[in-house]
């Protein structure tokens, strides 16, 4: 799999590695997918990178590759900003080859990372017709998570036709941030768009939302999909090639 802009892949890894330290990558002719849960089974990430999004892609037989995302992140940190990236696994090999190439082709770096034998659990996530779908700048969402974490461990997300409100309370007191829907969309990237069938009010652990925000550099917009008594789905699109979706179980009344 070759990417002209290897930084896209580095951003994907940075987006996942805090939530899941290691994961099994499923490779097929259609592309690369991954599903992994955090150790406490509170959050899940689902990654799709379709083959057509790569400069070149070939997979002769389906493979499951157990990879340490922490190690891969360290390797990818050595990559130059404009480097291209090629990932390769040879038949019957127990390692993955990560090759980087500088833009003017005067530097070539190769790394081999040992593959791991991982036990992976998968959840069947049905297509869900959410009560509420919010789109907002991902930088704004990151900021809200950061700001709400000052006030408490949990954030209550409430939606109405007018907007969406995030609130948190704790020993210090309480705080809230309300975003109103953008009425005059000039720049789609900066817009707040709320599609609502029913109002929702759900509480989530800020710590996990903040981990999801590590994937924010992938996309200028984030999608939040919510329904009562259902995990939140937080989506960052990966240009034309796929997406990273995070699922987070809500906090419920004791």
């Amino acid at each position: 799999a070759r990417l002209l802009h290897g930084s896209i892949f580095a951003k994907v890894i940075e987006g996942l590695r805090e939530l899941v330290n290691e994961a099994t990558w499923e490779c097929s002719g259609n592309g690369i997918t991954l599903q992994a849960m955090d150790s406490s089974h509170v959050a899940l990430v689902s990654l799709v990178m379709r083959s057509e999004g790569f400069e070149s892609y070939r997979c002769d037989r389906n493979m499951s590759l157990g990879i340490s995302l922490v190690s891969m992140s360290k390797v990818l940190k050595t990559m130059g900003k404009d480097d291209s990236l090629t990932i390769r696994v040879n038949d019957d090999s127990d390692s993955i080859i990560i090759a980087m190439e500088s833009q003017n082709q005067d530097k070539f770096a190769d790394y081999e990372l040992r593959l791991m034998d991982l036990d992976s659990e998968h959840l069947g996530i049905p297509d869900t017709d959410y009560s509420c779908a919010i789109k907002m700048p991902s930088s704004e969402f990151s900021r809200i998570c950061r700001d709400m974490s000052i006030m408490g461990d949990s954030v209550l997300i409430c939606t109405t036709k007018e907007g969406v409100k995030f609130s948190a309370k704790g020993d210090l007191g309480q705080g809230s941030i309300r975003l109103v829907q953008t009425t005059n969309i000039e720049k789609e990237e900066e817009a707040v768009i709320i599609e609502m069938k029913e109002a929702v009010a759900l509480t989530f652990a800020v710590r996990y939302l903040s981990m999801f925000c590590k994937a924010a550099p992938l996309s200028p917009q984030v999608g939040l999909s919510l329904s009562e008594d259902t995990p939140l789905m937080c989506e960052f699109k990966i240009a034309e090639m796929g997406h990273v979706r995070f699922y987070l179980a809500p906090k419920i009344e004791d």
Binding site: H41, L123, G124, I252, D254
Partner: peptide, 14 residues
């Protein structure tokens, strides 16, 4: 007070 639920409450293991 609220408690943290887990994903396995909502989705089936496959």
């Amino acid at each position: 007070s609220s408690i943290q639920s887990t994903l396995v409450v909502y989705y089936e293991k496959i």
